[in-house]
Write a protein that binds this DNA or RNA. Structure first.
Lengths: 210, 210
DNA sequence: TTTTTATGTTACCGACAAGTAAAATAGTTT
DNA sequence: AAACTATTTTACTTGTCGGTAACATAAAAA
């Protein structure tokens, strides 16, 4: 009978993740890319496997099934979007508008990633009831954050809006829509589009000079 | 050998469409509804047939295949959107901004229909190359129209925009995004949302009083 | 009545893709 | 060496669904 294993502290250093985790992550990254590019249903797991130079059953070693893969992709994307809200600097330092604009820029940046696009583009109708419920929870939280920023801006007078709820929807909707066509127009790249979008949303179409 | 049939003028009156056309249209309407609600891939033709109280092969009497159905739905939706541009009153009567806002409101209204949502929500990646090409042509035309309105507004000073191209994308994208929500939030109905969206786009978030 | 045309149904096929079982391989431990 | 563990493959099953063939029915035409 072997004695108790001696703990090797550097073996558990967080940056040294197990190979399994790395591979699982690679599967997820590949899935996110192809899901977001070609759509969930049009993507077969054989394709995902091929990208990784493995065969389909290998994927099942890392994920229970296709839906679990999609759920992980969407969740990761939503987690990134939610983290955008946590990077919000302490309220009071800047106006609500400034904080909102900074938030929207970070939000748009996440939407440029494969995970972000998965979260935004793929309908959660693909998911099981349980997964969808979790996804909806995070989406609600993100929406709440945007509304909060809008409300703060209204309070401090830096934002004019009659309805934070609809405004929050409109902002998210407008930014999410970027992901839908930006691959059609490869010439204008992400950040520029996002900046123009945000400028439009901030300033509006109507001229401000008189 | 029968003599030449005597033409019966009232038989060809345009409002008296053949039963076949009516049924074909019913198929299309049912397809548009369920495609836009549940998505193309998640919809089986058996479902569509069931809605109409027929069996699947009957659908094939009216359409060549599933993709032809989808194409007809999308095309009809896009035709409606394109018609929105034709309803534009003579230029010169009003400012570019007024014309654009009126356009956007009609556009949003179309997007409340099943066909409009099909056109906007379902990726044209589902279509064959030939169909997609046609669809893209109409989409380009719609985009051109929006750009034209924006440009006119810029010229007459009623619209402030640095880039009509991105602005047109942003406008369409924002309105299209309405279709993604509105079933989740049944309490706020279409036109109200659209009006708020448009108001935001026109006035912007930044307050105009000083 | 017979024939033709339009419309619909039953019963089926075939393909594709998700998912699984079980064997193969390689690395590690005993 | 032997045994065990982790990982991946080959080969297979299975369900779903788009699509079709062939027949049924009924109305209109001849």
């Amino acid at each position: 009978m072997p004695g108790p294993a001696i703990a090797s502290p550097w073996k558990k250093a967080p940056e040294r993740r197990s190979e399994r985790d790395l591979k699982r992550e690679a599967v997820l990254t590949a899935a996110a890319r192809v899901f977001s590019e070609r759509g969930y249903h049009r993507t077969s797991l054989d394709e995902v496997a091929q990208i990784l130079n493995v065969t389909k059953p290998t994927l099942y070693y890392y994920f229970k099934n296709k839906e679990a893969m999609l759920f992980a992709c969407i969740q990761h994307g939503l987690d990134m979007l939610e983290a955008v809200g946590d990077a919000d600097p302490a309220p009071g330092e800047r106006t609500g508008m400034e904080r909102l604009v900074a938030y929207l820029k970070r939000y748009a940046k996440v939407n440029e990633t494969d995970f972000g696009r998965c979260a935004v583009r793929i309908s959660d109708a693909e998911l099981s009831d349980a997964s969808r419920k979790k996804v909806r929870r995070i989406k609600t939280e993100i929406d709440r954050k945007i509304r909060e920023l809008v409300s703060n801006g209204i309070e401090d007078g830096s934002i004019a809006s009659s309805d934070p709820k609809i405004t929050a929807f409109a902002l998210a909707g407008a930014l999410n829509s970027i992901g839908h066509w930006h691959q059609r127009d490869a010439d204008m790249v992400g950040q520029k589009i996002a900046d123009e979008y945000i400028a439009l949303l901030v300033k509006g179409l109507a001229p401000r000079t008189r």
